[in-house]
Simulated assay, not measured.
Amino acid sequence: MAVSGNLRSMPFADLMQWIAMSQKGGTLVIKGRRFTKKILFRQGLVEAVTSNNPREHLGYYLVGWGYLSEEELTRMLSLQQTQKVALGELLVQSGRMTRDEVDRIIRIKTEVTVYDLMLWEEGEFFLLDEDAPRREFQGLGLAVDHFLFEGARQADETRRIRELIADPSHIPSVVQAVDEASLSPQQLALLWELNGEQSIEAIALRCRVPVFEVLSFVYHGMRAGVFALKPPTDKITRIPGTTGASWKELIREAENSFTLGDLYEAYRQLCTVRDRFATVPDAVAQANALERKLEVEIAKTSLGSEVIVELALSLQEIGYLNCAPEEGFVLSRINGLYTLPQILPQLPGPKLKNQLIIHNLMQRGILKIQESRALGKRETTGPFRRH
């Protein structure tokens, strides 16, 4: 049975606790208004986290914290594609970073991604219930409680911070003397960067700490009257880790989606690569290779056999879902009477795409499959009549 719903009715903390107590495995996909995040579980433990928010990518920290340049990140991503090794592992093997440095960045990246979900008041979620991802890697093995207690604290403080500081692009400065003896070494380092020229995000990157740490420090300083805030500059600031990544980063995201079982998202991402980089032979070749892997995976399911698909939710419940136009069209053709081989030819677009849409709708608990019954016992008139 598909596990799915919306954070409006099941808050993220409750959802995480349920997965932990049930010792569930699989990939939890949460689709918000702007971003989609995925959390891989094994026996209720958090093993890995991915996000399509560029500020939650590993490259953001590697470049923003000064470990790699944009060009070096691009070369490392290319090397990763050929060697099929995790980027962090590649950095350790090449001597660019120590194991402790990589582990710290991955842990902070993971925590930041999950803590942000504590602030989400709505978002569709579904659990891709699979025993193991399609690629082996060394997981984190973190207990859910590791995230919930600190995440709840940060969420509460973030809501208070937002009353004074709208976002990290604002520029803090010191307006009164600060008792430096009362500050920790990290707070002292942050204080020395408050020069009235750098944004909160820039200070966090320079000091190699999560943005929340700087936001909290500045907020309490403003409450004490020793810090002030200026509005952001008009200058466009590029997000670290995004320059030059181009199609290689998109392919990497598509492969991550494939690995974690979100096949339709992988297909959408590879189509983006083919559309944007149609004149780049390597990009098209890798997108085509991933498409062939998707065809193999979908062939392993029941979507190519004589099965009948029907709605698993009421029409009223479906009306509350955030469905793409192509998903809505597919749903409009599902009536529980016809088999998939009869339905697929009536849908526009490639067969694989429509199979993946139906597969995704099943993963989300919107559709379900019933055992096929002999068509001879059914109505044989209409657009899907048997010839």
Rank of each mutant, 00 (worst) to 15 (best):
R8S: 12
D14K: 12
M16H: 03
T27G: 06
F35C: 15
T36S: 09
F41G: 13
G44I: 06
G44D: 14
L45T: 07
L58F: 11
G64L: 05
W65I: 05
L68D: 06
E70S: 06
T74G: 12
S78M: 14
K84L: 07
V85M: 10
V85I: 08
G88T: 01
R107F: 09
T110H: 12
Y115M: 05
M118A: 08
M118P: 01
M118E: 04
L119T: 11
E124Y: 01
L128H: 00
P133W: 15
R134Q: 03
L140A: 13
D145M: 10
F147K: 04
G151Y: 09
G151R: 03
A152R: 15
R153K: 11
E157S: 07
R159F: 06
R159V: 10
R160V: 04
R160L: 07
E163P: 00
A166C: 01
P172L: 09
A177F: 06
D179G: 00
Q186R: 09
E193F: 01
I203G: 14
A204M: 04
V218N: 06
G225R: 06
A228Q: 07
A228N: 15
I236R: 09
S246Y: 14
A254L: 06
A254H: 07
R274W: 00
D275H: 04
R276K: 10
R276C: 01
F277I: 00
V280C: 02
A285K: 00
R292D: 07
K293D: 05
K300T: 15
L303T: 13
S305G: 12
V307H: 13
S314E: 06
I318T: 12
A324P: 03
R333P: 02
L340E: 01
P345R: 02
Q346I: 00
G349C: 07
K351M: 10
Q363E: 12
R364N: 00
E371G: 07
R378S: 13
R386C: 06
